[in-house]
Design a protein around this nucleic acid. Structure first.
Lengths: 347, 347
DNA sequence: GGATATAATTGGAACGTTCCAAATATGTCA
DNA sequence: TGACATATTTGGAACGTTCCAATTATATCC
């Protein structure tokens, strides 16, 4: 039940200047006299004025809002990614629409449309499974910069930021080989994502490099979640000649695999080597601490946001594709000697 | 590099009607003739028009944006809370600014100010530690509805949605008592939050009710995180007459406690009973599955969003305070007989 | 002191929508 | 057909800002 908003005109009136001058002050223009600036600022504070960015956007057609759409916020990898983005977005003076698509392309389309109506200056998208390049076409054609992260979207004319899944997976498998494993599995994930394909390719190439024959039975698909990991390990246990270690699609699957191993009485890291991918925060404190390929989600989020802001400021729409490097973090879950704790191998 | 935005006037021109009519169509007004509506809609589709909600807000002074500020998105409890809110906010045709304060009051102040400038219709806040009622005063005075969730903010004239921490803690301790425990600890958390105080009060009252003398040594403070849980259990182990079971401040602490127990060779659920609080998704699949007080974060998020939308629509600013009920979910981590798996006790 | 440069300020138009009051079209009735 | 009711459409003002070109105040020079 507040009386109508105070505006620049109210401020101008109270300070005895014109609205143009007030506007200049608000923008920190050097044109305005120091005395006047102080006067105006004090009136602003007195009247409890709040700037109306919407009105400003209307006039200048460039907003300070970025859109972020993430496929699954409940996965801590993406939550951390979002936090990283949040950090740089906020400190650049922007705000973000942050939405969760829940892997639904329809939902994703809706939120992007809604963000567009609300005038975003750019979009960072971690696409839901099944997203087509065409889905982003209208947005891109309208000249709004888009950065796609984590998952690739082939054919779209956008900037992308991916982690080096291939090299990371390869390094992980090499590590298992160096520990003497020869029956190495790959657990979790489905064929439909580029992330899966890349990691699997790294896995295959590392095996080949080591002269180990690939055994398709050791590649067990499952949902890319903790529950999926449990399911995967159950199926793995049914095999006559099962693996002695496995690279998991991500940390969530790896935790599930550890859970599953325990229920059949195998201690992860002793009877079976487990390597994850992502290095979420829990990886460090879990028991056993998880050996994993570190992607530094928060750092990746920051880099994505920086990339987007750069494109917004440049105005141009030349795309840029970055691959962020990853590194293998050796902890306890694959039976490495305990003294090697926290030792890091380059990947 | 797009030519200037197409506007209602362009549509009007192309469809041979006035801009007012186009506006009416956009709002789905029943006043406009069916033929005209179709014509206008087809032109809209042809020209790829995108509605400018900012301009609309300017005129009507009521936006379709809500602000959500959460203290820690990397904690999966809050991430799920956010997802719950997202669901109802989106389907009500709103978008959200979702920001992460990282427990920093300064940061929180900044993002709220920024959201205000961008014209939010309401705010849901899970306050950072140390937030004062006064921090929200200007926002509230300006007539914007605020819903505070999870943590209480005494003295603020806002609606609140809290979980029934007292009853939940009491139920958990009663359960431990019923299993025969008499030395029961309380682990994790610091005195500065209302959540901690309430859960501790429930713990104390349940002990008293059971005629068990309180032992302050069994209350061990720590950060409310997994790492904090590890630290807490280390200190607990130093005690001569240590606890045989503990209620933990939250699930994160409980997982840390389990980790810590394992490193000293105690199997959680066998040698030591552990109960968590929150029921995050991992609680179900962890090994051992965590007995915990279920708060249903996603449902709570939904309820918070509904409450906010209700207030936005009502326009009035009468506050409403809800306490959502919780229930004890008995799983394996406190040594309950396995056949009782998933049995639920009312709380 | 007048001319000139420089510093500071200003009114009005514009951004894309909604709202209002008024205008026009269409239908109905006697 | 004229009067009236109802259905549909419409031009202009308004929302709160920024931008531009133009104006006014102040300093500097000879």
């Amino acid at each position: 039940m507040s009386r109508s908003r105070t505006t620049v005109v109210d401020i101008a009136h109270a300070a005895g200047v014109s609205k143009s001058t007030v506007s200049l002050v608000l923008q920190g223009s050097p044109l305005v006299n120091e005395k006047t600036r102080e006067k105006v600022n004090s009136v602003i504070a007195d009247l409890g004025y709040v700037y109306n960015r919407g009105a400003a956007n209307l006039r200048q057609a460039r907003s300070k809002i970025v859109g972020i759409v993430v496929n699954d916020l409940t996965n801590s990898f993406f939550a951390e990614l979002a936090v990283g983005m949040d950090m740089v977005v906020q400190s650049a003076g922007y705000v973000q629409f942050l939405a969760h698509s829940g892997e639904s392309v329809d939902r994703q389309r809706e939120v992007i449309a809604s963000m567009r109506e609300n005038g975003i200056a750019g979009l960072i998208l971690s696409p839901a499974r099944g997203t087509e390049a065409a889905d982003l076409k209208p947005l891109i054609d309208s000249g709004i910069p888009v950065v796609v992260v984590v998952r690739n979207l082939s054919g779209a004319k956008v900037s992308t930021l991916l982690s080096d899944n291939y090299t990371g997976a390869k390094a992980a498998v090499r590590h298992l080989v160096s520990l003497g494993h020869t029956r190495i599995g790959f657990m979790g994930g489905f064929l439909d994502t580029a992330v899966f394909a890349e990691r699997l390719r790294g896995y295959r190439d590392a095996l080949q490099e080591a002269g180990i024959a690939a055994d398709e039975a050791l590649i067990v698909h499952s949902a890319p979640s903790r529950a999926g990991g449990v399911a995967a390990v159950e199926r793995m246990m049914l095999l006559a000649d099962r693996a002695t270690a496995a690279l998991c699609l991500n940390d969530a699957v790896a935790f599930g695999v550890c859970d599953g191993l325990r229920t059949v009485g195998i201690e992860p890291g002793k009877g079976f080597g487990v390597i994850g991918f992502d290095d979420v925060i829990e990886a460090k404190t879990a028991v056993p601490a998880l050996t994993t390929v570190s992607v530094d989600p928060q750092g990746m989020g920051q880099r994505a946001a920086q990339l987007l802001l750069k494109q917004i400021n440049a105005g141009g729409n030349e795309q840029e594709s970055l691959v962020t490097s990853v590194r293998l973090v050796v902890r306890q879950s694959c039976g490495a000697p305990v003294r090697n704790n926290h030792l890091e191998e380059m990947a």
